[in-house]
Amino acid sequence: MTTHVITGAGSGIGAAVARRLHQRGDALVLLARDDARAEELGAAFPGSRVVVADLRRPELLADVELPERVDSLLLVAGVVDLGPVAELTTEVWQQNLAVNLLAPAELTRLALPALRAARGHVVFVNSGAGLRANAGWSAYAAAKHGLRALGDALRLEERSHGVRVTSVYPGRTATPMQAKIHAQEGREYVPGKWMTPESVATTILTALDLPRDAELTDLSLRPGP
């Protein structure tokens, strides 16, 4: 059975991807930030294995027990804190780097033996901020630029092992994170203006399901006209 390890399955893009994979009968290993979220995920995706893992503490992720074979590692979870460089605290920087960059790097390292065994696929759900940085977005964009570099380096390093690597750069998507961003920007949030999580999930599944003779390396999505 095809096995996927997913972060961020509790809402937004991660939940949309998990639903699609669960509906087609694939095995899911879902990482939850705490016991309450783990209980929610267990109810939402019956038959899946749920593991509590706080991505804010990447140094503790070595305790996560992963399957011997992993067909895909889907790194979707993220946090965002906006503000000018003059006002961002070390704590804000540390949280953005830990969740958006260090935790994906550590989970990838830990999962590589299982990914190699399955000739699997790593998908980094990045952001448009991983391609350019706007005012007020320094901490988040810096982490996402680092995630882009991680994906690029990993792709070259793991090619001989048959591991595919895809970085996805969604623009604004109607998710709880987007609602938080609008609140931080002081703007009204109108979900209908933005892409749905399901549209991004379709892109991710397209990359996963691509025949082995090809690899989608970088995918940018923006809200349609």
Rank of each mutant, 00 (worst) to 15 (best):
M1L: 14
T2L: 15
G12T: 03
G14W: 01
G14R: 05
A15Q: 07
A16D: 05
Q23G: 12
D26K: 13
A27H: 12
L30F: 09
L31G: 12
A36S: 14
E39Q: 15
E40S: 14
G42L: 03
A43F: 05
F45M: 11
V50H: 14
A53V: 01
A53R: 07
L55D: 07
R56D: 08
P58F: 06
E59I: 11
V70W: 03
L74A: 04
V76C: 10
V76K: 05
G78W: 05
D81N: 11
Q94C: 10
V99T: 01
L101N: 08
A103K: 02
P104A: 07
P104L: 03
A105Q: 13
A111F: 03
L112N: 11
A118C: 07
G120T: 04
N126Y: 06
S127R: 03
G128Y: 03
A129L: 08
R132C: 04
A133W: 01
A135Y: 09
G136H: 03
A139R: 01
Y140V: 02
A142P: 04
K144Y: 00
G146H: 07
A149Y: 05
L150N: 03
A153H: 10
R164M: 06
T173K: 04
P176C: 07
Q184T: 02
E188F: 06
Y189A: 06
P191E: 07
T196Y: 07
E198F: 08
S199R: 15
A201V: 02
T202L: 15
A207F: 13
L210F: 06
R212K: 15
A214W: 06
L216F: 14
L219Y: 08
P223M: 08
P225C: 08
